[in-house]
């Protein structure tokens, strides 16, 4: 554990001195927290309430079951918020990607990997240290942003029905479980890409392709073809966890001393 802690400490000392990483870590949660709050505030205070029952709101039929006991306005709000849940899920994808890209490619450009690999640290400890250094900030920032978001809903006096939905199992499972799993996927994908390129910006840009499946899901939700409910969330967690395990296995292959020294570009 001491070696893993040392690597995490080293990564944070170094990566958090990078302006690009700091900007990503500061702006992303700010944006993804402020936007849904703004939307909620606008739909609560400025937009006139939608008249009639929820069936008249024009929302996808499959979604209406989630609106039981709500008026059309509240139903519209939770429909919009459902899309922002996916936005929240982007944080544990993008933040670890940025950190991992700068951490691995940074080591390659300064040629500091060889002295590091010459220490008694095992490759698993090194991989664990590097991964956790990227995953932990991504997850913690997501948790913090979600907490700020929930506090914001109290300050903005959002209807209790909508607030109740935002703390429903779908959201809580998404933030607490799917978030960390996505962060692991993003980190391992980024490590894989970083082993193939020698510029941190290229690594970051290529690694950001990891958000594409999430964008696809967002597209389906926007088109009303997909409803994010408890079942969807459980299946998503399961599938992503399997993908994370597969990528972790791939990571241990990539993170072999000889591989790093002789095959990484």
């Amino acid at each position: 554990m001491k070696h893993i802690r040392t690597i995490i400490n080293k990564e944070w000392s170094e990566v958090f001195k990078n302006r690009m990483v700091i900007m990503t870590m500061a702006l992303l949660p700010l944006l993804f927290t402020a936007l849904p709050l703004l939307m909620l505030d606008l739909t609560t205070s400025s937009v006139p309430a939608i008249e009639g029952n929820v069936e008249a709101s024009g929302l996808p039929q499959g979604f209406l079951s989630a609106c039981e006991g709500m008026n059309a306005n509240e139903c519209t709000q939770i429909y919009v918020m459902n899309q922002f849940l996916l936005m929240f899920m982007m944080m544990p994808l993008i933040i670890p990607t940025t950190i991992a890209a700068y951490s691995i490619v940074g080591e390659k450009t300064t040629r500091s990997l060889e002295p590091l690999l010459a220490t008694p640290i095992t490759t698993r400890e090194l991989l664990a240290g590097k991964s956790l250094a990227a995953v932990i900030p991504g997850v913690l920032i997501t948790y913090a942003a979600f907490t700020v978001f929930l506090i914001g809903t109290f300050i903005l006096k959002i209807s209790p029905a909508v607030r109740g939905y935002l703390t429903s199992p779908v959201w809580i499972l998404g933030i607490l479980l799917l978030g960390p799993v996505l962060a692991v996927i993003a980190t391992m994908f980024s490590i894989f890409i970083s082993s193939k390129v020698s510029d941190p910006r290229v690594a970051e840009q290529v690694s950001s392709l990891v958000i594409l499946p999430l964008m696809l899901v967002l597209g389906f939700v926007l088109a009303g073809k997909l409803i994010i409910n408890g079942w969807f969330m459980l299946i998503a967690i399961l599938v992503c966890a399997l993908a994370a395990v597969a990528l972790l296995y791939l990571g241990t292959i990539i993170f072999d001393r000889e591989n790093i020294l002789t095959k990484w570009k």
């Binding site: 300064t110 060889e114 002295p115 010459a118 220490t119 008694p120």
Partner: peptide, 17 residues
């Protein structure tokens, strides 16, 4: 690795630290 020290061809230090 515990018993040897190595000076690699390039110093490879953490420049920001």
């Amino acid at each position: 690795r515990r018993s040897v020290g190595i000076l690699t061809e390039s110093p490879g230090m953490y420049e920001r630290l």
